[in-house]
């Protein structure tokens, strides 16, 4: 299958204001550093990593919500990074986003109906009022809310319901790609499953592609066809779900997977988890060579000097580690 969206060598940098009287040069935080991937129609690519690994910045960089410092995002034959602002706005009909905090991502002064109808107003201004309303009602019903709720405000809904509203807003312009930035992380367990299933249903019905960003490996495993693991802005490993969870090759992926608590009292965590020691290095001053080397159990001198390339361990399975053949 051909790629719907191709991301090549994308980097997202933030410049922090120069602090102090004498430090003149602003600091640069490399949130995303040289990340490439493809997203195919109808598939979900899970992006996993811990706090500060740049997974959210990656999603925002792809959608041009932050301006990438380098790299290309190819969408329908054009590079989004090179397009003028007006042209990007037209592409937003097809490229949508769902945020983590369901309540704070909805304007508290607008009704649910207005919130869901807004993308239609922007992208289909010619649509008659009645048609618009019909489509909003159908969309609300599709995400599991009663259309009669359209005149209510976000503060009257629970977290899970607000996330349904966000999904309706993202879906109503019939996009082809949705970036889901931790869409279920702030929800309760029983609501998480509802939202995950809703996204899976919508994907089955519409063939939409999802870039599913999460720190929760269990959910990424449930949602994704392929997985991309990030650490300090760089890709550590990427591969199909079965290969990745079945036989992770990168020592970081292995530690990450083994650290997930398994709901089974007969498997005590102390024995099976490969606990990483040490602290996450500051993203302002990442280690030289391989960014993971300071916590890696397999680190050797070459890791200090050379950044490992993404080696192909198997077709479609890339590992950025000097010692991947030994893992």
């Amino acid at each position: 299958m051909t790629a719907l969206l191709t991301v090549e060598h994308l980097s997202v940098h933030y410049s922090l204001p120069a602090g102090g009287l004498f430090r003149r040069r602003p600091l640069t935080l490399k949130a995303v550093d040289d990340v490439s991937f493809e997203l195919r129609a109808g598939e979900t690519l899970g992006v996993v990593g811990e706090t500060g690994c740049g997974k959210s910045s990656l999603g925002k960089g792809v959608l041009q919500l932050v301006k990438p410092a380098a790299g290309r995002v190819l969408w329908e034959g054009q590079d989004l990074c090179a397009l003028p602002a007006e042209a990007i706005k037209r592409c937003r009909k097809d490229l949508q986003i769902i945020f983590q905090d369901p309540l704070s991502s909805l304007n508290p002064r607008m009704t649910i109906g207005e919130i869901v109808a807004e993308p239609l107003e922007v992208h289909y201004p010619a649509l008659a009022r009645d048609d618009r309303r019909r489509r909003v009602d159908a969309m609300l019903e599709r995400v599991g809310l009663r259309p009669e709720m359209r005149n209510r405000y976000p503060n009257e809904f629970s977290g899970g319901q607000c996330q349904r509203i966000s999904i309706a807003r993202a879906m109503i312009s019939e996009p082809k790609v949705i970036v889901c930035d931790e869409p279920v992380s702030s929800l309760d367990v029983s609501i998480q499953a509802q939202i995950c299933n809703l996204l899976r249903d919508l994907q089955r019905d519409t063939g939409i592609a999802l870039l599913f960003i999460s720190h929760d490996l269990s959910i990424v495993r449930y949602m994704s066809h392929r997985v991309l693991v990030m650490y300090l802005g760089r890709v550590m490993e990427t591969g199909g779900r079965e290969e990745f969870f079945g036989a992770p090759r990168h020592p970081y992926s292995q530690a990450l997977i083994s650290a997930v608590p398994v709901p089974d009292p007969d498997r005590p965590p102390a024995e099976r988890s490969l606990v990483l020691d040490g602290e996450l290095p500051s993203p302002l001053d990442p280690p030289s060579g391989c960014v993971f080397r300071t916590r890696c159990p397999l680190a050797v001198p070459v890791c200090i000097t050379q950044m490992p390339p993404l080696s192909e361990a198997a077709p479609g399975h890339g590992v950025a580690c000097h010692r991947w053949q030994e893992t």
């Binding site: 959608l63 919500l65 937003r92 945020f99 704070s104 909805l106 922007v122």
Partner: peptide, 14 residues
């Protein structure tokens, strides 16, 4: 800085 403003940018609002 609120997410809802970002969501407005993301749908292409002026």
């Amino acid at each position: 800085a609120k997410e809802y403003v970002e969501s407005a940018v993301a749908i292409g609002l002026s």
